[in-house]
Design a protein around this nucleic acid. Sequence first.
DNA 1: GCGTGTCCATAAGGAAATCTTATCCACGAA
DNA 2: TTCGTGGATAAGATTTCCTTATGGACACGC
Lengths: 297, 297
Amino acid sequence: MDTRQLAAFCAVVERRSFSQAAERLGVTQPAVSLQIRALEKRLGTQLLDRSGRRVEPTEAGLRLYRGAQRMLALENQLVSELAATAEGELAGDLVLGASTGPAAIVVPVLLGEFQREHSDVRVFLTVSDTHTVIERVADRELELGIVGASRRHRGVRFEPFFSDQVILACPPGHPFAGRTVTLDELREETLILMQEGAGVRQIVEDALRRLGVRLRDLDVRLELGLQESVRRAVEAGFGVTFISRTAVESELADGRLAEARVEGLDATREISLASAVGRTRTRVAESFVEFAKERVS
Amino acid sequence: MDTRQLAAFCAVVERRSFSQAAERLGVTQPAVSLQIRALEKRLGTQLLDRSGRRVEPTEAGLRLYRGAQRMLALENQLVSELAATAEGELAGDLVLGASTGPAAIVVPVLLGEFQREHSDVRVFLTVSDTHTVIERVADRELELGIVGASRRHRGVRFEPFFSDQVILACPPGHPFAGRTVTLDELREETLILMQEGAGVRQIVEDALRRLGVRLRDLDVRLELGLQESVRRAVEAGFGVTFISRTAVESELADGRLAEARVEGLDATREISLASAVGRTRTRVAESFVEFAKERVS
DNA sequence: GCGTGTCCATAAGGAAATCTTATCCACGAA
DNA sequence: TTCGTGGATAAGATTTCCTTATGGACACGC
């Protein structure tokens, strides 16, 4: 018996849908259909009732579901145990996600260096918005998530990863460069923003609100999507923007951008590591976390 | 993960040999070799040390062995449980062995009738000498064995199946037909025997020994291998033979053979059902046993 | 009633995995 | 040195698995 068939079966039972199970498993719907059919044939009994609006497990299906979960848990435990005791190099897959902010800051470099040190490790990073990353971590599709906002989620735990300071970036030689400006000065300047939903934008909104200011009180002329777009626009002289200091460190260093501060505005965010509650971390993931924490500190 | 790979691995660990594991699993040695290699690749660690005279599990291999046994036991339990609760027809494989005596008597008819009643059941019968059948039951290659001698074996339990009376068969019209003859009369007659090792021969030797007679004291002219050969020879008038009454019931009924008895000789044997100690019987096997017991009584 | 969308089953074809046969290599025993 | 045993590996065949495309059933909205 192939445990992949059991995993497919469990996904269908949990989602009550072949299509959604397929999506979760990263295969097509017919593949799941065929897997379940092979399983039903092998066990000689019908496991799912497809006659209704939703797929429902039969009584035999429920029994199998419980046993299958035990088998899959045992398999995971076995594989983890063996990976934990493996002599020599780390090997295996590191499957993680990051929201766009952290993904654009340090995650690629961290992953690249980690993979170079452990050449048998394969790294799979997906970049999505924070909400999607957290959902996929909860669904156990991703082992780790690196996000800039710690949303509350019952099935996900967050641990601090690193702090990210938000600065006001302006073109080199700009009147703001190297200074601390007042809010009144900021009101007279073209402000470029990231799209709604971007972590940095939220952080800035929160900090401004603490000063009794709303974004619409400022001269927001451009809303340019994500971090890379706004960085380029500022570099080209179209305005100023709030942005992660880490994300523009090299631009600051070689003078393509300059840094300013806003009087009374303290905008710092914590980047967190998300993982599914109760999930045993693989040795690969554990090593990466240690490695990464050492590097960002 | 495919539990067949785990089963192959466990067989190698137990047998300390790829070739013997292959034989036990009914595949070739390279198949086992490839399976183990796939498993080692998947788990990223060496599981077996092949450098010595015998294959030895590594430390990781021992850990896997223990976990794999748990997984395989869980799988078997799951499959049995589902088979036990299956609605509708019996389905699955019935894998059994019989020694030559019982195999020639009633087993084919029983299996044929059982299979006709349960068309989704596949029956696999192997016929060997008693010793081999019992060994293969102990090794769990056969779920059931039907044998005429209850050898002691630590890993096998025997339960009574049916009684088989041994008679003296002679050609129709023979002076012995329908009578009880003395040992002296028997000494003057050509006696045809089965080969050494045949169950009936052993039973007869034991019964004669209880009368103080040895086979070599009788006029053994022909030793003709197994049951079918001796039956034919007697039918053709070459002599008389000791044989299972059940095995020649139809010949007795239509007059192709006649039955006699030997004064003071009581030769009956018990046919037993053998199964591996502690092994949970599948629903198919359980049904067959009930069916068969009903038929032979 | 018709059109549209969703979902599962199935057919056909391609890819991957598994297995067998044949052969090679290493090792031990005679 | 020769022979036998046992595991690894190559090449080819077979089986299994998966994807793409499609059909049928059903629900919903117009």
